[in-house]
Nucleic acid binder design. Sequence first.
DNA 1: GTTTAACCCTGCACGC
DNA 2: TGCGTGCAGGGTTAAA
Length: 285
Amino acid sequence: MPELPEVEVIRRDLEKEVVGRKVADVEVFRMRTIRRHPNKAHFKNALVGRKISSVGRRGKYLILKLDKGSSKSDKASVLVIHLGMSGRLLREKSKKAPTLPHTQVVIVFTQGGQLRFVDPRQFGEMFVTSVDELDGIEELAHLGFDPLEDNIPWTEFGRLLTQRKTKLKALLMDQQFVSGIGNIYSDEILFEAGLRYDRRSDTLSSQEIRRLARAMQEVLQEAVKQRGSTLEDEQFVDVYGEPGNFQSVAQVYQRAGQPCSRCRTPIERARFQGRHTWYCPQCQS
DNA sequence: GTTTAACCCTGCACGC
DNA sequence: TGCGTGCAGGGTTAAA
């Protein structure tokens, strides 16, 4: 599942591959991916003729800025992309490259090359909106701080934590509290910080708050450096189709029964809010 | 305010 | 072997 590090890897790849390119054509295979648009033509018309001027990220959302079209009435707009659970963005140099199963949208550039959105489970989505209306999109407007971009002081982080009375894993995965963290990285961050998934957020000492703030930065930065996590059952790849490597340095995620790297106690798996969580029963409290 | 459950969809494991 | 059923998986939202 793409979380902040995977989305950031894609963002950096797209910066190299699509900025400056102009959209020549758009093919939509299923409506579900562009469900915020009334029909395929509406989505296509919003993109054709526009040039991509930059690629940004908000939490797990990619924001591709589009320059103004040729008509005077055209407003500056953005293409917003969420990869959902299984979405992939792939750059294809040739239009002759075979179309993978579950390809939902293909964007063709005037300079040649294509960007393809492949999403088997169809939880991902794409939509075009004007820059003015972007802040009115609820999912984006309600996003919490970005753990890598917004360098919030640990004291402020502590204030936010103690304002809430909820279990740490739930809070880390709450996009309205902090944006971009999902199941993999919440487990890894909590291990790094020595805190249990079900520890209440308002019971942390200042030392523990600092440890958690530091773990969040370190784990996410390392994951970006490793170009994300590609697990057996997930299959994240970058825009060149290459897998990430963070899974090989992960300490607890999907490692039940294996000895903890710090204390050799076997890693345990528990069920938390309908999902699995992995932790060291000795090192995390 | 916090927790739980359901939904979205596909692929896969399992049992008959 | 082939088919049908049930469920995992993450994010979001509605309901409890």
